Computed example of a mutant assay.
Amino acid sequence: MTRNLAEISLQSDIKTTATHLLDGRVKLMQPRKGYRIGMDGALLAAACASLPKVKTALELGCGVGGALLSLKMRCPALSLTGIEREPDYAALARENIPLNALSGVTIIEGDIGQGFKAFELERFDLVFSNPPYFDDPDTLRAPHDTKRAAWIADDGLEAWLDFAQSAVVDQGHIVFIHRADRLADILSGLSKKCGSFVVRPIQPFADKESKRVLVRAQRLGKAPLRLLPPLVLHDDGERKHTPEVESILRGKADLSW
């Protein structure tokens, strides 16, 4: 049974607000202050939804479940697991599952830095993530304490890439969205066990350089790297998003590879 937003509560005193995704089909309770799902998580879910032959999927650092539940809504038959280190975010993710009357979604509280073996899980057809974008706190102005865990990867990006490669089955897919200037690190890190790379740049405007990249890889993949045309988020007109992105955000289209 779908739960009313007002019924959501946590043991801590964290204050939450309601957010709606996919044209209102996904309802989320998120912290009023701190990390909140944005464009990156929405695009990540849309990119994963278009992959073939995926029955089980794992999200690393699932937060309150925005990308996880968006993917579940797009692919109802998919069995999904999310790992989240922060207790309040993991608790909210668990609450958001029945809020959307969904099943087949599991939230595990744990640290990616422990490595995949520590979780004693079976490997997955798909592993996806929107990991923290910085691993050196000295490279940016210190974020607010409520956002630090989402911004700073304490064990470094390499730990997330290694975890993903250990967690995915042979020929399974890995999908990451990250800063464009870390593309070389992502490709190098995933090359330990993966290949068949597909890269899709994400540009704010057609005449601006990419700030983000979507990277797809396959464990033991051998196909040549493919660089796709960029996804342009905004046009120069009155629309907030380009028609393609608007359709993706509303859940009317997946993000194709």
Score class of each variant (00 low, 15 high):
residue 35 Y to V: 01
residue 39 M to A: 09
residue 31 P to L: 12
residue 17 T to P: 00
residue 48 C to I: 11
residue 43 L to H: 10
residue 21 L to K: 04
residue 25 R to Y: 00
residue 46 A to S: 15
residue 34 G to N: 03
residue 18 A to Q: 05
residue 31 P to D: 10
residue 14 I to Q: 07
residue 49 A to V: 04
residue 13 D to L: 13
residue 34 G to H: 07
residue 25 R to F: 00
residue 44 L to F: 10
residue 24 G to P: 00
residue 39 M to G: 07
residue 30 Q to I: 13
residue 15 K to R: 12
residue 17 T to Y: 05
residue 24 G to I: 06
residue 52 P to Q: 12
residue 48 C to K: 06
residue 19 T to K: 13
residue 52 P to Y: 11
residue 10 L to Q: 04
residue 26 V to G: 03
residue 9 S to Y: 06
residue 30 Q to P: 06
residue 14 I to A: 10
residue 10 L to N: 09
residue 43 L to A: 12
residue 6 A to M: 14
residue 12 S to A: 01
residue 48 C to N: 07
residue 40 D to Y: 01
residue 28 L to I: 08
residue 34 G to C: 05
residue 43 L to W: 14
residue 41 G to Y: 02
residue 35 Y to C: 03
residue 49 A to T: 05
residue 48 C to F: 08
residue 27 K to T: 13
residue 28 L to C: 00
residue 25 R to A: 13
residue 9 S to R: 14
residue 20 H to Q: 12
residue 8 I to W: 02
residue 30 Q to F: 06
residue 8 I to V: 14
residue 31 P to F: 10
residue 26 V to T: 06
residue 31 P to M: 07
residue 13 D to F: 13
residue 9 S to G: 04
residue 34 G to T: 11
residue 25 R to E: 14
residue 6 A to T: 11
residue 26 V to I: 14
residue 8 I to G: 00
residue 48 C to H: 08
residue 51 L to W: 06
residue 41 G to S: 10
residue 49 A to R: 14
residue 50 S to P: 01
residue 48 C to A: 12
residue 41 G to E: 02
residue 43 L to M: 14
residue 45 A to E: 02
residue 15 K to G: 00
residue 12 S to L: 01
residue 43 L to Q: 06
residue 16 T to L: 13
residue 47 A to M: 02
residue 4 N to I: 01
residue 22 L to C: 11
residue 26 V to E: 07
residue 48 C to S: 11
residue 17 T to D: 08
residue 48 C to Q: 09
residue 40 D to F: 12
residue 46 A to I: 10
residue 18 A to M: 08
